[in-house]
Amino acid sequence: MSEIILNQVTKNYGKVQGISEISINVDPGLTGILGPNGAGKSTMMKMILGLARPSMGTVTVMGKDPFTDWEQRNKIGFVPEFDCFYEHMSGLDYVSYFLRMHNYEKQEAEEMARASLSELGLEDSMERKIRTYSKGMRQKTKVARATVFDPEILIMDEPFQGADPSTRHLLMNKMKEWSEKGKTIMISSHILHDVENLTDRIILINNGRMLASGDRHEIRKLMDHIPRQIKVSPIDKANLRILAKRMLDEEWVRAARVDEEQGEILLETDRAETFYLELPKILQKEKIAVTKINSDDDSLDSLYDKIVGGSQWK
């Protein structure tokens, strides 16, 4: 059984619709929720955390209603997008404070907090007041607070926002590590690259509606009727126009554009499988050697562009 189940969930804030009729099952491992700002990612996460109630539909986390079953919150860690600190506390005090809320004894809480903060590279600054922390240190402190009690489920809302490259790298490694331990991790992001590096399992949402969910390659296959762009770079630039003209003879090639500067041809096809099958044969026949054949269309950027036009992506 999936750890998190959303069944036909709709959430309205007065007349404004937060999310609409979303149904997903989230299994252990890493799942990325992708969508532009205001797509409904945070709303979805709040309902999983029991911070908001669905207007319609049901949310089940480990078989229970997260809004009413407060006791199981000791199995869920939350890294919010926003700052949520007691600025007068030190990082150590802050993490210990929330561990005490999880019913840990003072000594034990302090030791656990110290270990967690050290693991995230804050050993030298954990005794400093949070008000003196940089954005990256704050992010690490939030992650330490959310993971220190070893939750089964980890909900991370834009965890890389404002993080410097080293923090980003560290957090990514940690997430992979936790995921390998069998934890259920849900990450929302509007930075496609971050999620792409972590997982293939994605949920795409926009304007409160789920556009697609599953493996990003599978999603791409489902959208095979949508034209795909593939770049082909011949070794000899003199072959650019010859190859482009030859490719346009095929019925499965919809368009071809030559980029002399980059030394590549951008081909558009609506039958990707045939394209990849036939292209090598054509190249062999025409005796054209190429340095690379690649498509950016498997990237989430392109997936998103295909589905929603990318106009709201920031």
Binding site: R73, H102, R145
Partner: peptide, 15 residues
Amino acid sequence: NRKTMQILRTTPIMS
């Protein structure tokens, strides 16, 4: 205002 209440509400204690 500090949004710490949201975090408190995700801890296993009663309101």
